[in-house]
């Protein structure tokens, strides 16, 4: 029973692990960013579900309603979403610059290019 009632946490944990796995396992920079987004989104879900009060509605004063959901986590997560968007856009901007100067967005290839450049630099 308990396990099912707390299904929201299971969703959060699944998303978190999926995002984290993608972040670590992928060599493709864009996929890393997608993983990072899923990872962050899982935390947003955690906050949002925290604020839900059983039977509560949106916190707007109206007649006949006396149970409200807690609005604070929702407000907080609005801020966090803004932060997340900024992070994503900055990351994408970086990837564009990386693509321009390395002509690839694969991490292994970038490391290889740097390694070759290093060897040429030290022999010269």
């Amino acid at each position: 029973m308990m396990t099912l009632e707390l299904y929201n946490y299971w969703v959060v944990i699944f998303l978190m692990m999926a995002g984290f796995y993608m972040l670590i396992a992928s060599n493709h920079l864009i996929r890393k960013i997608i993983g990072l987004n899923i990872f962050q989104t899982s935390v947003f879900m955690l906050y949002i579900s925290l604020g839900k009060v059983a039977g509560g509605t949106a916190p707007i004063a109206a007649e006949g309603i006396d149970t409200y959901s807690n609005p604070l986590p929702h407000v907080l997560i609005l801020t966090a979403i803004v932060v997340g968007i900024s992070t994503t856009s900055l990351a994408l901007a970086l990837v564009i610059r990386i693509k321009e100067s390395y002509d690839t967005v694969n991490e292994d290839e970038i490391l290889e290019i740097d390694r070759i450049a290093d060897e040429e630099g030290s022999s010269a």
Partner: peptide, 27 residues
């Protein structure tokens, strides 16, 4: 150096993971 870009990207990924952990902790 163009490696500044990859260094920054690496830092961004690690830093965001760290910050997200902090966010979970605070939550």
């Amino acid at each position: 150096d163009r490696r500044a870009l990859t260094a920054s990207f690496q830092y961004l990924i690690m830093g965001t993971i760290g910050a997200t952990f902090i966010l979970i902790g605070i939550g």
